[in-house]
Design a protein around this nucleic acid. Structure first.
Lengths: 119, 119
DNA sequence: AATACATATGAACAAATGCTCATATGAAAG
DNA sequence: CTTTCATATGAGCATTTGTTCATATGTATT
């Protein structure tokens, strides 16, 4: 029953080897931070709704605003957030800008999330 | 070039059929809200780190706190959040409570998120 | 019953977040 | 070059969120 590190609780409830193993297996702090930042972007119903619309078709800001019953400004702000995280890409055509999903990960993540929620 | 609905912009940039199609394909409002709530839970680095630890092994609150260098209280609060979203489950053994991941979705979601972030 | 230890929880406070409003940028048309 | 329309953006404000601190609950041991 060997242990060594100074625990905040009286005893380490698991073997030290397990703790060490976990420590090693943990991705670098920065990656975990970025990962949380990514999911933060998914964590808002306006942005989720935008993504689901773009799931079906590319669309301009104005149509998104109309479809979701929100201000052009609000939608535009959120699109910038989505753009920063590289979840959407855009294409300019004259005055209008068309947004669309940028890669397949978005679909998988949304899909799995939905499975978890609806089961 | 038919259009009908009252747009907030002068013209609907996409055909009305596409808009209708998107409307139909959209999951119910409430599901999208729940989905956003789920991702909100992933959107915090403390919780992400907890999940990654539990990815490797089940662990008690106190060890988690030590491992992540945080207060027992902070960890416990976050575990309650994770529990509410059914992302972790727990098992009592005497005075200590062991937490672990509750299903496979967590792994897939984290995995896909990590792929997106690290590429 | 009393104590000790692990965990949970409520209140409070600072920080982050999403929307609104006003305004700026950018592109086409007159 | 001025106007018009679509989009972007900055400041301000109200709400939400994560942590801390103090304390409560729960379980075993004496």
């Amino acid at each position: 029953m060997e242990r060594q590190a100074a625990p905040s609780c009286e005893y380490l409830s698991v073997h030290q080897e397990v703790v060490d193993q976990v420590m090693e297996a943990m991705p670098p702090e920065e990656e975990l931070f970025d990962l949380a930042e990514l999911f933060k972007v998914f964590g808002d119903s306006t942005r989720i709704r935008i993504l689901y619309v773009l799931f079906e078709a590319e669309m301009c800001v104005c149509d998104l605003a109309q479809l979701l019953g929100m201000t052009q400004s609000a939608i535009s702000h959120q699109l910038q957030v989505l753009k920063k995280s590289k979840l959407v890409k855009y294409r300019r055509e004259g005055k209008t800008v068309f947004y669309s999903l940028s890669d397949g990960h978005v679909r998988v993540i949304l899909g799995q999330g939905m499975e978890h929620v609806t089961e």
